[in-house]
Design a protein around this nucleic acid. Structure first.
Lengths: 345, 345
DNA sequence: TAGCCAACCTATACCGGTTTAGTCGCCGCC
DNA sequence: GGCGGCGACTAAACCGGTATAGGTTGGCTA
């Protein structure tokens, strides 16, 4: 047992002494900066290697005023959050970029917006992170001016509805909704309803508008729309409302998979057979979508790719001071079993 | 606009000067340590307040060799991870304790165990965290000796099957499984099967053993058991296997809700009506459990409480050097609609 | 051959806290 | 009245890096 136990940490000074150079030069070599001859640099790195030196993150943080960490603050009811696999996949994607760079992810889950803003402030005054991901964009989002004022680099997941100094990484989700509607129309549906997400959230409003537009384009008016807060419970309630009408829709386009799955549940409970009497489409393609019965026809998002791209963009912004907006490939409709031609009536 | 823009940071030296004392004394006052008269302490804190001084986390980290952060490393396929709401709730619970203390949570999602162990090492050499949560305990878990050797404080979620220097926070889940079996037996079931989790994971094996024990206790032998890796796909496959037997079970006890929900889907797909022809119980009480049809009879875990308790325990361990094991109230059966008396035949 | 610049490297002052080794005044006690 | 001891406080070292203002060298120009 090569007891590293209580072994005093190897510092930059040890490396400098051993290599016969000054601390400063070791630092230069480490951060491969000009002003070190190739030969010396190699020697320094070699000595560092044999000594097993790892620069102290803490010391580096203090003197360079960086923290080598990125932040993600999620403001949601944890119960609701749990059923949404978006973040776990997103985070996994982020990690694939951060880990090799030796960067960490600091995660906060907070109950509401005021706490969220406060969390960002603390993150900044503590210098806990070098940048943050801004997800679940809201209408007139208070976080954008807040972060801008704090001077914290950020990347928005989706394009904000207001002037924003931050690059955005977005995915076109309107196309998927339009595709869903077209698919249903082609199957022969005419009374198509939409269980929308929260209008306060950008993607909620966007998908709703895409639904309306697609309906108009098909010559079916605006289509009936029920707004929710994206929660499973609200999705279930909305479905109940739609199905208890005298002339109920033959198809429902849901703004998210969790709501769609709850919708299937409600339909079954009411004795409305899916897809025979009611076709259902979702959005996200969460893992459950493939395993409920009937398997959910839905629009496939790619949160892992999103995470990876957002991380790359944010790193670029931090390192170079600027980064371009990125538009990910549009989410596409995945046809499974929950939507079919409407039966007679 | 009181431009904090470019305002040089207020440091401990400013506070010291303003209060007419030395830096050291300010530090003492801040960390309320003896050796400061009540009067002086009050003055210092008052000055700090009016100056708006927040001690620099980075400087504190460097000199005190603490990082004011806790870590959670999750080793799972992100796809599988997504459908398990355990972690998001757990994390939310952890946050309720950390946030008020000004501590952060560093999260890592890694694909496999080697990477996981490497991540712990990096976390330690970087001094990124002051302690970690150890979840998803495995048989003969390599992480325990690894962390012990690294000298990193940790709390295990559940009791390990090996000598462990770390406190554990556990919840009795065997009771809930036993309750499920008893419930089914009382309903009149005799052919009860179990879709188990991974035997490599402690809770997988424990629930399976609890199932066997309960079956024996009911005089029903050991009961048929199919082992899985806890993934939804495996849960679906296992159900398919069970239901395609000549003499199929009239009830299945699943080791997790996601698998149980997949089980309901498979049953429906095969035209086996739930609960009439097949009763199903789950474990976890994830949010979806209430919204599928029929609503899932399951065992209610409380991940948020678990998170809160684990955080408290870990903090105690870090601050005092020792902490006692905690046993949370046992998870109880929640009766909904997915289990009923078996019909005739 | 002095002059100059570039390339390479050193010395040292930071970053902003914590911690330790004292200093000082004052009280109690023999 | 000298001494021990204690509480309050200061000065300075220290944590382990980064940044910057010089100092050498050597080659090239004028």
């Amino acid at each position: 047992m090569e007891s590293t136990r209580d072994a005093p940490r190897v510092t930059i000074a040890d490396v400098a002494r051993e290599a016969g150079v000054s601390k400063g030069l070791v630092s230069f070599a480490l951060n491969d900066r000009p002003g070190v001859s190739a030969e010396t640099r190699a020697r320094i790195l070699q000595v560092a290697g044999t000594l097993g030196w790892t620069p102290s993150l803490r010391a580096r943080s203090l003197s360079s005023k960086r923290s080598f960490a990125l932040g993600l603050v999620i403001a949601r009811d944890p119960e609701v959050l749990g059923s949404d696999p978006f973040f776990t996949s997103f985070i996994a994607g982020v990690e694939t970029i951060l880990a090799p760079e030796g960067l960490a992810l600091v995660l906060s889950v907070v109950p509401d917006e005021p706490t969220e803003l406060q969390t960002y402030r603390t993150l900044v005054t503590d210098g806990r992170v070098d940048g943050v991901f801004l997800s679940d964009l809201r209408r007139d989002d208070a976080r954008i001016p807040c972060l801008a004022e704090l001077g914290l680099p950020a990347v928005t997941l989706g394009r904000p509805d207001q002037p924003s100094p931050f690059p955005s990484v977005s995915i076109d989700d309107t196309d998927g909704v339009a595709e869903s509607v077209r698919h249903l129309v082609e199957l022969g549906h005419r009374r198509i309803a939409h269980v929308a997400g929260s209008p306060a959230m950008l993607h909620g409003g966007r998908r709703r508008d895409a639904f309306s537009a697609a309906m108009s384009a098909a010559g079916l008016g605006n289509g009936q729309i029920v707004e929710t807060d994206f929660s499973i419970a609200a999705g279930a309630d909305a479905t109940r409302v739609l199905l208890s009408q005298p002339e109920r829709p033959t198809a429902i386009v849901f703004a998210s998979d969790p709501m769609a799955i709850a919708g299937i549940g409600v339909a079954q409970e009411l004795g409305v057979s899916v897809p025979d009497q009611l076709s259902i489409t979702g959005f996200d393609d969460i893992e459950f979508a493939r395993y409920v019965y009937p398997a959910l026809t839905t629009v496939g998002a790619t949160p892992m790719v999103w995470g990876r791209t957002a991380a790359t963009t944010l790193l670029g912004l931090i390192r170079t001071g600027s980064a371009a907006d990125v538009e990910l490939p549009a989410a596409r409709l995945i046809i499974r079993g929950s939507a079919s031609s409407p039966t007679s009536h």
